[in-house]
Write a protein that binds this DNA or RNA. Structure first.
Lengths: 214, 214
DNA sequence: CCCTTGTGTAAGCACCTGCTTACAAAAGGT
DNA sequence: ACCTTTTGTAAGCAGGTGCTTACACAAGGG
């Protein structure tokens, strides 16, 4: 079924170029998240997509451009759909959930790609700007942007230790516990940040993983 | 001067092999800190040391072994000479100082080398274990080790944003301000952490120093 | 039918990587 | 002098990288 072109939608594709493009995009997204930019080779990406690597260059031009499309694709949904005061916890929980399905792996991709090249650092800076800008709105201090940067730093640092370094006991720690500790400590930095579990959660032995979606 | 062997100390070296070894070690330390493990090639390291790359392999065996010696050389001085309750601030200030002379760049090297290989992540994990273990002694909670991990995560995250990503305004921010904000917020996590500027700095110009304590 | 256009593939290129080998030159002992 | 050991170098190897080129199918139009 993956090979049969579905001309039901449009007859513009004769052998489903759009589908191949999408498969390449998906394969790249996964491999970038698993290995980072440098260690994910174009051959591996094409292999996972089940096509020849030459198609990758025909459709995207270069590996870097493919990386750009991957980052741009599902990257900012979380940023747009999450209210500011929930953003930190949602992003943190997304990071703690690891490679779960449907989660936004942009931050994970960035973390694993850091050493790759200066352009990758630039991409991370771009994404960071947006996150930090939103987080900065949670403080009315004149050092608000700096506080936003520091909050984002913690978010990335935790992801770093969990996803890349694999430090115990952080990796196996209960996401709720981590959230409570971090958000609690951040309350001193960002006054607009609602304390974790403040709303309806008793704060004791909590096992639920459903973050309140604003 | 660099070429004249100094046989004053010991006549075991005829053309100053020890000196060359040291120059290689210095060059590697600098390049690893600037570019990370992967992007610092053995040719660049040998070039900066002013010798042929073959000597690198004669003296160290492999690039990875050289990396190990670099990490082991000045890596743990800070860890041994700094009391636990001062470690976080000292490490943070070292990170904020950037590539200043004499500073311990081990964490910086780790940050820039993350994506490189699994062994590098292992090295970072090893160094992290030591830092986190010390930081964990600052909390008497049963989640002490987790809190140590979280503190270290923040430290690395800030380094990440400053050194690798180059996020503004964090890069240009006053180290004292950053220290006060971070250490202040961490007070809720690690009870044994002395608040920054408590002794002589009459802060409080921009923000409350007393965060909500757990 | 041929011919054009879009989709896919195999093979190769130029370059870079860590690492090795063969060889030259300095010191020192005898 | 001669020879050995140590220190240094130039050239090369095997493997991997991003990327390109030349070519094989599948459609549709004339």
């Amino acid at each position: 079924m993956a090979k049969t072109p579905q001309h039901g939608a449009a007859s513009t594709t004769r052998r489903d170029a759009q589908g191949t493009r999408l498969r390449l995009l998906d394969a790249a997204s996964g491999l970038f998240a698993e290995r980072g930019y440098e260690r994910a080779t174009v051959r591996d990406i094409a292999d996972r997509a089940g096509v020849n690597q030459a198609l990758l260059f025909r459709y995207f031009g270069s590996k870097k451009a493919l990386f750009g499309e991957v980052m741009a694709r599902g990257g900012h949904e979380q940023l747009r759909t999450t209210p500011a005061e929930r953003l930190f916890e949602v992003a943190l929980r997304g990071m703690l959930a690891g490679g779960r399905e449907g989660a936004d792996r942009s931050l994970e991709v960035c973390l694993r790609s850091i050493g790759g090249s200066d352009e990758i650092a630039g991409a991370l800076r771009g994404l960071g700007e947006e996150y930090a800008a939103v987080l900065a709105t949670l403080s009315e201090s004149d050092t608000g942007t700096l506080r936003g940067d520091l909050a984002l730093s913690w978010l990335l640092g935790i992801g770093l230790m969990r996803v890349v370094v694999g430090k115990e006991p952080l990796v196996s720690a209960d996401p709720d516990t981590v959230c409570r500790l971090v958000v609690g400590a951040l309350g001193g930095l960002l006054e607009g940040l609602p304390q974790a579990g403040e709303a309806g959660d008793g704060g004791g032995a909590d096992g639920r993983d459903g973050p309140a979606r604003g």
